[in-house]
Design a protein around this nucleic acid. Structure first.
Length: 212
DNA sequence: GCGACGATCTCA
DNA sequence: GAGATCGTCGCC
């Protein structure tokens, strides 16, 4: 246990180095800690996305646009984008400002605020599924496009990022593999997750589709 | 201005 | 295996 806040400097490294550091970190949304309405998620699965020109799978690959503008800003800010006409996905901006890299938060374990999260997910659901998958994680935390650009490192921020506790998610418990759902640079092993954690969205080689 | 497609999820 | 559903971006 530590009161050390994850610093902006910690996030200023390259996405593929920052990403595994975020495993075990806690993202909290809403009012004061553990007050009603507040939801906290321990991050269990992430993906790194590089910046301009270096990562064909990244939104920033072709340069700055209106949508990805937040990625070009300070590390430690929240980048939220809309996909498939219905889902929001949350990222932590990292790297040096203007580098435009980010870490997609793919899954987490809801630590508190489970009932709020369950309501937002729209009905009865096992705890481990409350924030499993990037779109579901955003729903559980109540994150939408309105939150894009928020400073996650600010004490008074609506959404806050806290470092993982000492000892949690030790390196030998971290697994990595290819990113999910992308076409370009699909072989780059830039997805990290906490090995064996039931809240991770997909495990390699494990079929999660229901059998027909 | 238009059209194709996507860092997904759910149900069958 | 496919549908839901719409903002974004590249290209005409």
């Amino acid at each position: 246990m530590t009161s050390h806040r994850l610093s902006r400097a910690d996030l200023a490294g390259p996405a593929d180095r920052v990403a595994p550091l975020l495993l075990g970190a806690v993202l909290e949304s809403g009012g004061p800690q553990r007050s009603s309405g507040s939801v906290a998620v321990r991050i269990t699965e992430v993906e790194a996305y590089g910046g301009v020109g270096v990562d064909p799978a990244s939104h920033a690959h072709r340069g700055r646009t209106n949508r990805n503008a937040t990625m070009f800003g300070e590390p430690g800010h929240l980048y939220v984008y809309f996909v498939y006409g219905m889902h929001w996905c949350a990222n932590v901006v990292c790297g040096e400002a203007s580098e435009a890299s980010a870490v997609l938060l793919r899954a987490g374990e809801v630590l508190w605020g489970k009932e709020v999260a369950r309501e937002r997910r729209g009905g009865p659901r096992p705890d481990r599924e409350l924030a499993r998958g990037p779109a579901n994680l955003a729903v559980a935390l109540g994150i939408t496009g309105d939150d894009s650009g928020l400073d996650l490192m600010g004490d008074g921020s609506e959404i806050r990022l806290r470092p993982r506790q000492a000892g949690a998610a030790a390196p030998d418990e971290i697994a990595c593999g290819p990113r999910v759902g992308i076409r370009h640079a699909a072989d780059r092993p830039w997805r990290w997750w906490i090995a064996g954690d039931p809240t991770v969205s997909r495990h390699p080689g494990v079929r999660i589709d229901r059998p027909r």
